[in-house]
Design a protein around this nucleic acid. Sequence first.
DNA 1: TATGAATGAGGATTCATTCAT
DNA 2: AATGAATGAATCCTCATTCAT
Lengths: 202, 202, 202, 202
Amino acid sequence: MPRTKEAYRQIRQDRSEKLLAVAVEVFGRNGYVGTKIDDIAAAAGVSKGLVYHYFPSKEALFTTLVEEAASGTARLFQEALEQPGSAAERLRWLIAREVCGMSGDPQRFLVILQALISDAAPPQAREAVLGMVAHEEAAVVALITQGQRDGQVVPGDPHQLSLLLGSMVQGMAAAMATQALRPTLPTTESLVGLFILPDRTG
Amino acid sequence: MPRTKEAYRQIRQDRSEKLLAVAVEVFGRNGYVGTKIDDIAAAAGVSKGLVYHYFPSKEALFTTLVEEAASGTARLFQEALEQPGSAAERLRWLIAREVCGMSGDPQRFLVILQALISDAAPPQAREAVLGMVAHEEAAVVALITQGQRDGQVVPGDPHQLSLLLGSMVQGMAAAMATQALRPTLPTTESLVGLFILPDRTG
Amino acid sequence: MPRTKEAYRQIRQDRSEKLLAVAVEVFGRNGYVGTKIDDIAAAAGVSKGLVYHYFPSKEALFTTLVEEAASGTARLFQEALEQPGSAAERLRWLIAREVCGMSGDPQRFLVILQALISDAAPPQAREAVLGMVAHEEAAVVALITQGQRDGQVVPGDPHQLSLLLGSMVQGMAAAMATQALRPTLPTTESLVGLFILPDRTG
Amino acid sequence: MPRTKEAYRQIRQDRSEKLLAVAVEVFGRNGYVGTKIDDIAAAAGVSKGLVYHYFPSKEALFTTLVEEAASGTARLFQEALEQPGSAAERLRWLIAREVCGMSGDPQRFLVILQALISDAAPPQAREAVLGMVAHEEAAVVALITQGQRDGQVVPGDPHQLSLLLGSMVQGMAAAMATQALRPTLPTTESLVGLFILPDRTG
DNA sequence: TATGAATGAGGATTCATTCAT
DNA sequence: AATGAATGAATCCTCATTCAT
């Protein structure tokens, strides 16, 4: 019965992904320490014990989830570099994707933020985020530097601008997590407008 | 023979301030849930029990401290409005003060961030922060609107720009709290450069 | 494969009853404040944590248990009214049942007493007892009044006699809880003799 | 300055008595474990530390106070025996004094009850009460026995009647401590009527 | 003598994790 | 694979007691 084995593997895979997806939501809302395994199990509609069939510990679950979020985000930076077009266009593409991802799935940015600001969070999770941030730094600095050379990006130290852009995205995610601020979501264009000079070619 | 009333008052005042100062550090680093009363007591060099002589609960301590941080920050916005000079100059003053405060005392921004993003944090603390944010919104929108009329501030919806500026400040505080990112502090001028147009009068 | 729902229900039921039974003993002996959750857990042979699977708090456990004791006792008064025979016979039946219950399970009367005399006891527990006492008052006053009309019960204000009878039962329970007084248990007949006139028909 | 020394001694004595009086109230209302030293200090209008100048510990304070209550009550039994008149008259005098004392100072009976029913109370306090109860037993049994011989007291085993009388007094004190039951205080005569036969001489 | 700040052991409660079924 | 009962370490908070002044 290789079919059955395969089916089991599939179930495992599905459940595992379902749990991770649910866990991002819950951790994102309540933080690492503020989230109970029971909360996640309940949100996923399974028993507490089952979570331990898929992840050896709360720490491992959180770390896995942060690593996925971080590597997903890091992939974005790589993709941005590989986009066609000018540096400014690629930077705009990157910002658009981040704003889009943020409004669609703000919890993902929140868990990254939490891995950063909470000393209670597993060190491995923080390291994953720091690695991702290094990628971001490299990619954004490259794009900004090139864009400035092209006269399409605002002047200023590329490292500092990169940090400011990153901070803004994180800060926006934090703001979005607060119901009270939902009404006024910033658009891609507002953000782009701060970093990219108006196109005088049009 | 007991000490004088005044002596007792002085002791209470000193200890209370010491505890609040220490608590900002510890809460800022570890978050609301991640901080044990014992951590604060140890950091202040007193016993666990003494903390309860000064604050009725962990929740009250955190709330007090967030309220102070929020009202201190709100005061800043009021002062900015009352500064002399053009809107752009006043906005620059505000940003400078925020950057300065942030590098001097990043934990203060962190506790504000934590009151926002953690559902485990006391609701009263969150409300204090939301009130402060409303002040910020009002002040910054006013300055931006006026600055745009004067042609000194970048174009764009003032509400969105206000939110972006606020997000950036919060995000920077979060970044600063991470040791790994300390090296590259953004300067006031980097931030100012994003929102205020270069002075063409010079 | 999990156990059946029924099996789980059974376990919960058993443990719950065991815990309540044990808790009556321990609370009865040590009082509300003097009883530690650990004492109850140890007496039941389970861990401290398990108690919280069944009762949300010490307060809820105590309240539940007092409510059960009170409603059980209140049922007795109702039954007394519904007995066949003269008022005096029904009163005698009631007293006999109380004395009997008291010697079999004195702790039950003790927790009722404690809910009454300790300001630290949960208010809800006290209210349950007061409700039961009101039932008692009504039933005993009715029986005494009728019995006096029949010339079978000692003269005197029925309300006062009711209160005296109730006080005596509570006081006896308190006395019985003290090892030193165990030897001399009062019999039903001693009590009955105080309130019911000797039968002159024989 | 022998005068000053004497004055100090007087102050000590006064304070000590004041503290004991206040403590009876508070312990009576809240029980041994439910009473904090701070409660007593506050009720007496002094500082917490001062209580320890007069009593070495909470336990000693409670014990002292129970011993005084017990010896005061024991004295009553002795006095009853020494009264003039028939056994029935002396028994009536005793009951009258108890009812009177109870309505004037119910807390005194409550602390005695608490010393009996709470295992958390100091053993020495309980022993004082048990000693007093033995006195009571002896005195009341003597009076009842004599009274029955005179045909003035209800028939029945004197020991059991003594226990019932004692229980009733304790139970009434407990009932009186409950606000809800205050309205209907039993009178001396109701109680007397249960134990002493109507005077046919009149 | 009198005060109240300070301590720390003790007890209620939570929750990650284990385990029998 | 799945369940939820069971455990116990960790944490908040209380309060008897000590002590400097």
